[in-house]
Design a protein around this nucleic acid. Sequence first.
RNA 1: GGGCCGGUAGCUCAGUCGGUUAGAGCAGGGGACUCAUAAUCCCUUUGUCGCGGGUUCGAGUCCUGCCCGGCCUACCA
Length: 677
Amino acid sequence: MSPRRILVTAALPYANGPIHIGHLVEYIQTDIWVRFQKLRGNQCIYICADDTHGTAIMIRARQEGRSEEELIAEVQAWHERDFAGFDIEFDNYGSTNSPENLALCTEIWSSLRKADLIVEKNVSQLYDPEAGTFLADRFVRGTCPKCGKTNQPGDSCECGHAYSPADLIDPVSTLSGATPEIRESLHLFVELEKLHDFLNDWTQSNQHLQEEVTNYLKGHFLHEPLRDWDISRPAPYFGFEIPDSPGNYWYVWFDAPIGYMASTKQWCDRHGQNFDDWWRNEQTEIHHFIGKDITYFHTLFWPGMLKSAGFNLPTKVHIHGFLTVGGEKMSKSKGTFVKAETYLKYLDPSYLRYYYASKLGPRLDDLDLNLDEFVAKVDSDLVGKVVNLASRSAKFVEKVGLSAAYPDDGGLFAQGAAVGEEIAEAYENCDYNRAMRMILELAGRANPFVEAAAPWTLRKDPSKAQQLQDVCTIALNLFRQIVIYLAPVLPRLAEQTAALLNSPIESWQQAQTPLTGTPVSKFQHMLQRVNPKDVNAMIEDSKEPEIISTAASQFNDSDQPLKDEPLADEISFDEFVKVDLRVARVIAAEHVPEARKLLQLTLSLGGNETRNVFAGIKAAYNPDDLVGRLVVMVANLAPRKMKFGLSEGMVVASGSGGDEVFLLSPDAGAQPGQRVH
RNA sequence: GGGCCGGUAGCUCAGUCGGUUAGAGCAGGGGACUCAUAAUCCCUUUGUCGCGGGUUCGAGUCCUGCCCGGCCUACCA
């Protein structure tokens, strides 16, 4: 079989934040696949870039008082450093803010124009007159027009109601605090519906996508006319200005995927390769690895753009799920939002590469990082089973090296060679956990062999020197075979093994033939067991007070109250409704002469229904100020006998006590007796 | 509400085309070994295959209804 030519991409990380262990699922998954392809002798390149355009970058640069170019250069340097730290090896790492990208965007744009796919429409959008920019939905907050909840984002409310930011009551720009105004501007759209038949065909056939994704697209988008795609943003915007529409810029999601091509172009130029061999040649395979959040862009717009411009279509879009830690979303406050940089301060990248590989499958399921399992798997699988093979046999043959001929091993090596293609198939299908299982099975057979052959006994008898060398030759060859199969996941281990046995590991085929007659270097530890203390330290180091959103921080609310009194355990709705909260009117309020803290309140629930309540609010309220006002009471609390009489409920208030008491009151219009739901 | 995926041992999961007595790793229990990073090896305990119904000579596997979980999505399939 002749070598395949394969172009592989991972999604472009946005140049607005650090790489974290969630990102790494994708880059490690992709890196393993690329290394596997290279080991198999295919011509394969791993292409990526920073995604640098858009409002968020522009705003952040502005806030930091520097140019966008300076910001994205700094972030890109961080990204590249982090990736390198995890042995993620790109053939080219570019930037969407490159001349190559501009040239390709221009070319594809003119193709879309020629295909008559571009239309112009006016769009009403909120504009921040102070910041001088149009506002994306997430930069606007206001009151929900349906339920009246305040401080809701620009696209939808907690109550589930969706709206356009222009519908918000009292909208506020989170950038400047100014009240946005509605401005109309011209936007350019791609008429995706004109490509409907093509997309239907492409997504539903030939296994370009996982089956779930095919179904998803069919059910969510392709069953109805495709909406026009808004592909431009008016100035000011950080990006490329559209050549034939001055003052308008390509939306970041137009130029981002083209960044795959631009980065390929850079690689081609450096290596004297022809760009068209990679993007305009039916023989070339193109594989995109992405997270499920950006499915839409990569399975509809992107193929549509490529088709219209006459480029290769993706051979396959591999979509993975998100990372959870301990079964929950990554959380900054819990310390599970671990940055790549922080991880590397405490732990070996090989651990994470192996752990992810042992959990990754071909489907979109989320991947859970369980820290106890992480420690156990690395210790038991990698150190205990795999590396141990070398660790327990290498030093016996340091002086003599491997036997000149491969001895009889009872068929162990041949068994390992025989499953090579099956393991390869699992890698090829991104079924890494299956591959890891099969590989570990080999280690599970090799250790009992060493146990039975007992080299530590043989070495005591000089007449058995040849037998000792043979046994170690077998053990080290079984080890090496395993390491070759693991090489895509653990490139460092492969290098260490090559150094130990003085023979480079560079091809999958090497697992088919035992190594003989080479010298054996002095054995050095290849991988330490995981120290759980380091794992804990990493989590501690990652803890930071969670910033809920830019809008919350704008109000500068302290986190002290929550710290003083953390959230209670979750309750069910049924439990909640047991508490009967009612609006009540204070119809009388008096001091209790002998009580230090109490006021006696008479609350009306409307009609003749009244309740006598003793409330510990004396230090904070004057009785006279309370009469007439509405409060919220717990109406079905068991009555409690107190020194001064029977208290028939509780008035709800926040605050720490003393004069720090704040009664809750309903908004105007509430009636005594109404239940609070 | 709808869509997709899942539910198998204490935990993580495998289980092909429906085929004998449902498996592995980890954890637990017992033993061995002392080369190896408290590593390794041998033996061993553990199951309402989510629940009900159906098809079948035979169902973890196929069909169907329901329950539970995850993700996605939302006057829309």
